Structure formats: C-alpha cells, structure tokens
Amino acid sequence: MSQKGKFVVIEGLEGAGKSSAIELVHSIIEQHTGQAPVCTREPGGTPLAEKMRDLVKIADESDPLCDEAECLLFYAARTQLIANVIKPTLAEGQWVLGDRHNLSSLAYQGGGRGLMPLVKAISDASLQGFKPDLTLYLDIEPSLGLQRASARGELDRIEQQHIAFFQRARATFLQYAAEDESIIVIDASQTMEKVHQDIRQKLTQQLVNE
C-alpha cells in the first residue's frame, strides 16, 4: 500500500446502480489494500454537510431553493467534507471511496441547470485543483434510470426534475469523461451482473497499473 491514500469516486445519474457499485468497489479496494476505505457521500459526510444535504434534497414550496443557492450549498458541503474528512484521511495513507463528488456539480448544476460559468468559478476557487484519483461513471439513458429510480420509491426534489435536465446532465458527464483519462465510463444499462463484471475488470486493471 502506498504511503498516500487514493480517492476513488462513483458517479452516475439516478437509477444507474451506484449503491451496489459502491459495495463492489469497497470490497475490491479492501482486497487490494488490506484495509477498508473510508466511505463518503455528497452532499453530506460531516454533521454540518449532512444538514446542507437536507436543505438541498427536501422541497419547500413556501421557499423554493433557487438554482444558484443549490449550487452554493453543494460546494459548501463539499468543502467541509474535503477539509475535515477526505484530505486528513488521504494524508494518513487510507483510501477514500466517494458517492459523488465535483463531477456531479459540473453535470447537474453546470449542465442540467445551465450554471456552468458559476460552477466552474466556485469549483476553481474552492477546490484549487483537488480531484479524485479515479472516477467510475455509471452511464445510463435518463428515461431508463428514472424508471429504475421510481421503482425504488418516492423521488426526492432533484430526482423529480424534467427528463431534459437529466439529458443535459448526462451529456456533460460524457463530455468530461471524454476529456479526462481518470474517468472510466461503465455502461450501466446492462444487467447488474455485467455491470459489476465491467467494474471489477476495469478497476482491477487500474489498480494493477498504478
């Protein structure tokens, strides 16, 4: 195991199968390093960031959350998580496994909401170049993903957005994946067995070549 830990992130639209993928990646990392990774989620991951998560996820018809405020809350929560959990954990030589990170803001608030100039400005100022060592993006056509998500139960405020919002988000995910070698695209429309097979193969290859 290297002296410095690594930061691995799972990304994807609603219904892409992130939860089961995270369980698989967790076991692969543990087998590779001999130590379970510290798991985080965004927004959230610290007591204060979890409160921000509630503000973002829950719709309040009497005081609708505007798009710009949503973006700022995501970055406030992310900055807390990086400063108080992710960076200290990596510095101790442990690995971190994240359920979403900055790529989600670029896709959802930047692409979906049309706030890319604001997102890039806040991202540059708050993260200062910090990024995951590896990102697995679970790609799925939005209508299929939302169908799967609806089958799980009631949708939250963001999951209730119009299909066009998720189509723009997906296009942004794929754009960044095409430009960044550290982002690996997994076809999440396949059976779970095939998705997990692809994840295991591609992640193991990355770990062997590190």
Rank of each mutant, 00 (worst) to 15 (best):
117 P>F: 04
133 D>G: 11
66 C>I: 15
185 V>E: 06
72 L>K: 13
63 D>Q: 13
127 L>I: 06
63 D>V: 12
75 Y>S: 13
123 S>F: 13
116 M>W: 10
138 L>S: 06
176 Y>L: 15
185 V>M: 13
103 L>E: 06
152 R>W: 04
194 K>P: 00
97 L>V: 08
76 A>P: 00
159 E>L: 02
127 L>W: 02
101 H>I: 12
74 F>Y: 15
157 R>P: 02
120 K>H: 09
81 L>T: 11
191 T>A: 10
82 I>Y: 11
114 G>P: 02
80 Q>C: 08
173 F>M: 12
80 Q>T: 06
78 R>P: 06
127 L>Y: 04
93 G>I: 10
161 Q>T: 04
90 L>M: 10
111 G>K: 01
141 E>N: 11
177 A>R: 12
79 T>R: 15
92 E>N: 10
121 A>C: 10
91 A>T: 09
71 C>D: 01
151 A>T: 03
153 G>S: 03
191 T>H: 02
142 P>T: 15
127 L>H: 03
160 Q>W: 00
106 L>M: 10
111 G>N: 06
185 V>K: 08
83 A>Y: 08
121 A>N: 09
136 L>G: 07
185 V>Y: 04
176 Y>W: 15
169 A>H: 02
94 Q>D: 03
115 L>C: 11
93 G>K: 06
109 Q>I: 07
153 G>L: 11
115 L>T: 09
145 G>M: 08
71 C>R: 07
83 A>Q: 14
151 A>Y: 00
91 A>P: 01
177 A>I: 11
140 I>E: 02
129 G>L: 09
83 A>M: 09
146 L>G: 00
123 S>I: 07
188 A>W: 02
150 S>I: 04
145 G>H: 07
180 D>M: 04
84 N>D: 12
169 A>T: 00
164 A>Y: 04
120 K>P: 01
105 S>I: 00
83 A>F: 03
100 R>P: 06
163 I>R: 01
181 E>V: 01
125 A>V: 06
187 D>I: 04
173 F>K: 01
157 R>F: 04
136 L>N: 06
62 S>A: 14
103 L>I: 14
81 L>S: 12
97 L>I: 05
73 L>R: 06
78 R>I: 13
65 L>A: 12
74 F>R: 07
156 D>T: 06
